[in-house]
Design a binder for these strands. Structure first.
Length: 840
RNA sequence: GCCGGAGUGGCGGAACUGGCAGACGCAAGGGACUUAAAAUCCCUCGAUGCCUAGCAUCGUACGAGUUCGAUUCUCGUCUCCGGCACCA
């Protein structure tokens, strides 16, 4: 055994052994309980970053721990490898996306292996491979058969820079989630998935997500956005036509003083010239301004036959409800502002107190209250009125009670090359024809030109584009749009259950592993990916592929990896090395120590995992990133903290080195003959096993588990064995410590395990067990409080009765002065911990 | 505005169902070893006060409350972070 710990040598050695022995391969095994540990797969950008390191380190500890606890663990990894960066690289550097992507995968895979992550690579999923995306296409056809995929013309979020359509979820603050350019509305023919058909079920299912962070469930619920209300018909004065509006406040129906329709509403085009409407459409969805145009028409309020003007307004959304609203300025702030702007009347129909009087409003009164000026409904509470007015409208055939969702159908078409071709053919005679299953996969042609200008390169790929119609054999044209990459990631977790050469929907494989027991990934996917996956899983269930609807039983959203930043007034963000002695190296100005921010290239506070691995080794990085914070919280990267982790590993190394002669001691420990020193170490060891196990099992609090191991090391360090029993205790303690640290720092654990004379991999060992009896302290520190204040600490035998503890406390010299001459009202005893004497 | 979450030493963070606040680590200070440095090891480390080997008082954002006892529970206030936001 070497004197010094050489991380690189040790780590490469064990990585080679693991690969050679197939240590991380998993096959189904009915004799053991299954555990599916999954981390969100990365986009293969070419280099891993600290966020990946943290995410995958957490997953790896869980996988290795569960394996030692006797589970058959599935721990796969793959590549979310379709998407725009590959295409952008093709345009910029003239590299084909295929070559670029696969090279990136190779280098990232090497990095992941260098971190010592325990993946079964036989199950690797690469979404850009035809073998994978064939099944995207197959699922698309099934969606089509079930009416869950359809085409419609609609306004879409369009990113001019990426030249593609974006899903609502990909628009952040009206900007593209990838490139930050402003998103505009554009009308296009698009394929949609009918996720709204599952809105209710997805919402109800939220309550079963017991193993998910509350906030993620809240975000999903919020996104689905269910509301109850009524749809009501307003007749148009002097016409047979009607306008159907949606409202959640039918109790305010008598207060409607005008009506607004979306600019894209079919009737708007009838009443107004395209000229006038285009002005509204241009500011559609603009939160800053509310604009409207009077249509010249009037509507009849169905409850009081009042004539009210109809406006077209930019703030009314065509996608939500019916695309038309009744405007009640007294009880809706938006309508209030609109009414003030255009001089429309405000009529109060809800008052706070029963039988209250309406008064002049400075802003809309949006709370519930009691109805006034509402005919037969006056006097009712808002909630009663909502029900009664709903029924009234239904009874008269003027409307109905309905449920609405903010959730929209999922637009999946992308005007891009690097994605799954949508398996559709357009024939002049037969129309839209799905590609027959036997012709799948529709392969993305390799031989295309990336000009970077306008539209998808597929539009110029004539061999791909021109096909025979599968139905009539006539000449036809392929769909050139490709699928949103979120389709790829909506079912990849099912693909892992089977090996590469097996059919992806082999039921016994899926049932052996799914649902995922522990999913780990970033909070940024709280709605997008997780909602789509829940939707897909339900559709796959309804296709009869398996019997469950929720894909992820437990979800852990790890925090971001952050680091301090430096800023100069003139040169903005600075690299740490640009801030010498608090001065900017470029201009000499004072450097401002910025906030701790998420690592990002633009803020110049990233740390390169490669550099750290070379300097400290993978185990040190793993240990630090698990120790510095609990997994769900943000982690602040600290160079000194890494040093500390490295020191700790060196300490372990030298302790094993120093004690190599005792380390292999075996045999029964004679409990009765133990020295106090040995008894103490034995007790501490059992306590540590208990603490580490409980901390990992409860919320994966690795930081406190590691802290407990550090305490144990601190106690082992000065231990000098004098007898054979001492050696046996020490050996037991060292072995337990290594077993417990193994999931965190697997390479070092294997090496030291071997150095202790063990022949098998440490991961074939069972997790150590503790004995509550041996973990018990025989002396406890009894805290004595008088009126809640600590006055003394006594050493007492464990298992003392309440009475004996009270007596002991009262007899103590330090306690006496505080109770003398006072009446003892009460004595509270917490067993083995505390006595509180209440004296007045 | 609405919905989440958080606020504890110089710093990252501990404290299980209400029972010793500050585990563990980092930084800092002191010491040992060394020709010297690094590495390593040992000690100190919330604040204040005092008759300074000790003891007392204060202390978990702030203000109340419940309780023998509150970082933990309840109510109110402030600040910060995240998400959603014309969804009728």
């Amino acid at each position: 055994m070497k004197e010094r710990y050489e991380s690189k040598e040790v780590e490469l050695k064990w990585q080679r052994i693991w690969a050679d022995t197939g240590a991380h391969n998993t096959d189904t095994d009915p004799s053991k309980p299954a555990f599916y540990c999954l981390e969100m797969f990365p986009y293969p950008s070419g280099k891993i970053h600290m966020g990946h390191v943290r995410n995958y380190a957490i997953g790896d500890v869980i996988a290795r721990y569960k394996k030692m606890r006797g589970f058959n663990v599935l721990h796969p990894m793959g590549w979310d490898s379709f998407g725009m960066p590959a295409e952008n690289a093709a345009i910029k550097n003239k590299v084909h996306p295929t070559k670029w992507t696969y090279e990136n995968i190779e280098s990232m895979k090497a990095q992941l292996n260098r971190m010592g992550f325990s993946y079964d690579w036989r199950r690797e999923v690469t979404t850009c491979s035809p073998a994978y995306y064939k099944w995207n296409q197959w699922l698309f056809l099934k969606f089509l058969e079930k009416g869950l995929a359809y085409k419609k013309r609609s306004f879409v979020n369009w990113c001019g820079s990426c030249e593609t359509v974006l899903a609502n979820e990909q628009v952040i603050d009206n900007k593209c989630w990838r490139c930050d350019s402003v998103v505009v509305q554009k009308e296009l023919e698009q394929w949609f998935f009918r996720i709204t058909g599952y809105a209710e079920e997805l919402l109800k299912g939220c309550d079963e997500l017991k193993g998910w962070p509350e906030r993620v469930v809240a975000m999903q619920k919020n996104w689905i956005g269910r509301s109850e209300g009524v749809e009501a018909d307003f007749a148009i004065d002097g016409s047979d036509e009607k306008i159907r509006i949606y409202t959640t406040r039918p109790d305010t129906l008598f207060g409607a003083t005008f009506l607004c329709i979306a600019a894209a509403h079919p009737l708007a085009a009838k009443f107004l010239s395209e000229d006038k409407l285009s002005g509204l459409k241009a500011i559609y969805g603009d939160v800053e301004q509310k604009e409207g145009v009077f249509t010249g028409k009037y509507a009849i309020n169905p409850v009081n036959n009042e004539k009210i003007p109809i406006y077209a307004a930019n703030f009314v959304l065509m996608e939500y409800g019916t695309g038309a609203i009744m405007s009640v300025p007294a009880h809706d702030q938006r309508d209030f502002e609109f009414a003030k702007k255009y001089g429309l009347p405000v009529r109060v129909v809800i008052v706070q107190e029963k039988d209250g009087k309406p008064s002049e409003l400075k802003e809309a009164f949006e709370d519930d209250g009691y109805l006034v000026g509402s005919g037969e409904f006056s006097g009712l509470s808002s909630s009663d009125a909502r029900k009664k007015i709903g029924k009234f409208l239904e009874g008269k055939g003027l409307g109905k009670v309905t449920v609405n969702y903010k959730l929209r159908d999922w637009g999946v078409s992308r005007q891009r090359y690097w994605g799954t071709p949508i398996p559709i053919i357009y024939c002049e005679k037969c129309g839209v024809v799905p590609v027959p299953e036997k012709d799948l996969p529709v392969i993305l042609p390799e031989d295309v030109v990336f000009s970077g200008k306008g539209g998808s390169p597929l539009l110029d790929a004539s061999e791909f584009l021109n096909v025979k119609c599968p139905s009539c054999g006539g000449s036809a044209r392929r769909e050139t749009d490709t699928m949103d990459t979120f389709v790829d990631s909506s079912w990849y977790f099912v693909r892992y259950c089977s090996k590469k050469d097996e059919h992806p929907f082999t039921k016994e494989n899926i049932n052996a592993w799914m649902p995922v027991h522990q999913y780990i990934g970033g909070i940024e996917h709280a709605v997008l990916h997780l909602l789509y996956s829940r939707f897909f899983t339900r559709v796959m269930r309804d296709l009869g592929l398996f019997g469950f609807g929720e894909p992820f039983e437990n979800l852990l959203t790890q925090g971001m990896v952050c680091k301090e930043t430096y800023k100069c007034a003139e040169h903005e963000w600075l690299f740490p090395e640009e801030a010498k002695d608090g001065k900017c190296v470029h201009c000499g100005k004072e450097v401002e120590k910025g906030r701790v921010e998420k690592m990002s290239k633009s803020k110049k506070n990233v740390i390169d995992p490669d550099a750290l691995i070379n300097r400290y080794g993978a185990d040190t990085i793993r240990l630090f990133s698990l120790f510095a914070a609990p997994p769900e919280k943000d982690l602040e990267w600290s160079d000194q903290g890494v040093e500390g982790a490295s020191r700790f590993l060196n300490r372990i190394w030298s302790i094993i080195n120093k004690n190599s002669s005792s380390a292999s001691a075996v045999g029964q420990i004679d409990m009765k003959a133990l020295s106090p020193q040995s008894a103490g170490l034995l007790r501490k060891t059992h306590q540590t096993i208990r603490k580490v196990t409980v901390d990992i099992d409860r919320e994966y609090h690795f930081n406190t588990a590691i802290a407990a191991l550090m305490e144990l090391i601190n106690e082992i360090n000065p231990f000098a064995p004098a007898s054979e029993d001492d050696k046996r205790v020490l050996a037991f303690s060292l072995r337990s410590m290594l077993l417990m640290i193994a999931p965190f720092t697997p390479h070092m654990a294997e090496e030291l395990w071997e150095a202790m004379g063990q022949k098998q991999s440490i991961f074939s060992e069972a997790w150590p067990q503790w004995d509550d009896e041996l973990a018990k302290e025989n002396e406890v520190e009894l805290v004595v409080q008088i009126n809640g204040k600590v006055r003394a600490k006594l050493s007492a035998p464990a298992g003392l009765s309440d009475d004996a503890a009270s007596k002991m406390a009262l007899d103590d010299e330090r306690v006496k002065p505080f109770v003398e001459g006072k009446e003892i009202k009460k004595i509270v005893v917490v067993k083995g911990r505390l006595v509180n004497i209440v004296a007045v």
